[in-house]
Design a protein around this nucleic acid. Structure first.
Length: 264
DNA sequence: TTAACATCAATTCTGTCGAG
DNA sequence: CTCGACAGAATTGATGTTAA
């Protein structure tokens, strides 16, 4: 499936690269390696490259010969900017999804939408007031990992931001008591086969889940009526009305959560 | 123009210790 | 025995420079 998808994408790849200069590593190989990292939950780019050195399956999948040397780890951080920050990742996802559609694995009637917290790669210690003097080392401890005490302080997104990842927001799901620096991921699934139809990642805030859900439902092909399942966080009057307008029957638990209201 | 290399700072990991 | 604090070490992605 990956081979097929890359065939369709090869034109896009050649646009991204110059034809002069030192020959680049084939973007197909880099993306294959990135896929392995995701499939096998490899926690860092360096560990991924370590695996590529001695794991024959990884070498085969990426297309490296037995004695080919593996790339330098900094290649990945450079290429992430060039490849993954463009729309390539989204286009690749669409190419795989279309293959599933061709095999009649995608239903177009019943859907489910949900959001998930994606933790940012930044610690709470990096969450500091925006207007404070940068990296004031006087406050508690010195060295590379200073102790930071924020007991009793109000820390909010409009006054604070993370030094490491300024776009990450302090956010929590109602069930999850602890607020974390994070982003929100949104997925639309079709129910017959349980395949993901559309994915988004946004900044973490209270309205993003429903806003993205509306956009994803609008993109569902065809003009027929669909059903949309979701958890009770989506049971907001405006959202429900919008879904009805879009010809989508909401299947949400009521916010009160009684069985009668769910049946109703 | 891009990969490789060397280096940096932020962040996490890990073993130890003391309190309960 | 468990938990949290602590400190030092390891890990990690980013960055500036050099080489292909």
């Amino acid at each position: 499936m990956v081979d097929k998808a890359f065939e369709q994408l090869s034109d896009k790849f050649s646009e991204l690269y110059s034809h002069t200069g030192r020959p680049s590593i084939a973007p197909e190989s880099l993306l294959r390696a990135a896929l392995l990292q995701i499939f096998y939950s490899i926690r860092s780019e360096r560990l991924l490259l370590e695996q590529l050195v001695y794991n024959l399956f990884f070498r085969w999948f990426v297309g490296l010969k037995m004695d080919d040397s593996v790339w330098n780890h900094s290649v990945f951080s450079k290429n992430r900017d060039r490849l993954l920050n463009t729309e390539i990742a989204a286009v690749f996802f669409a190419a795989i999804r279309d293959q599933a559609a061709q095999k009649k694995l995608m239903s177009d009637e019943h859907f489910t939408v949900d959001g998930a917290l994606l933790e940012a790669w930044a610690s709470m210690k990096s969450y500091q007031p925006k207007d404070s003097v940068k990296n004031d080392p006087s406050g508690g401890g010195s060295g590379k990992n200073p102790t930071v005490n924020f007991r009793g302080q109000k820390r909010k997104n409009d006054t604070h931001q993370s030094v490491t990842d300024p776009e990450a927001k302090l956010y929590k799901k109602p069930r999850d008591q602890q607020a974390k620096l994070c982003y929100l991921g949104h997925a639309l699934m079709e129910n017959r086969n349980g395949l993901v139809v559309d994915i988004r990642v946004t900044l973490a805030n209270g309205t993003a889940e429903r806003k993205e859900a509306i956009e994803m439902v609008e993109k569902v092909p065809g003009k027929h009526r669909i059903t949309l399942g979701a958890d009770k966080g989506y049971d907001i009057t405006d959202f429900v009305e919008r879904m009805r307008f879009l010809n989508a029957t909401p299947h949400f638990p009521k916010t009160e959560g009684t069985l009668q209201s769910m049946v109703a």
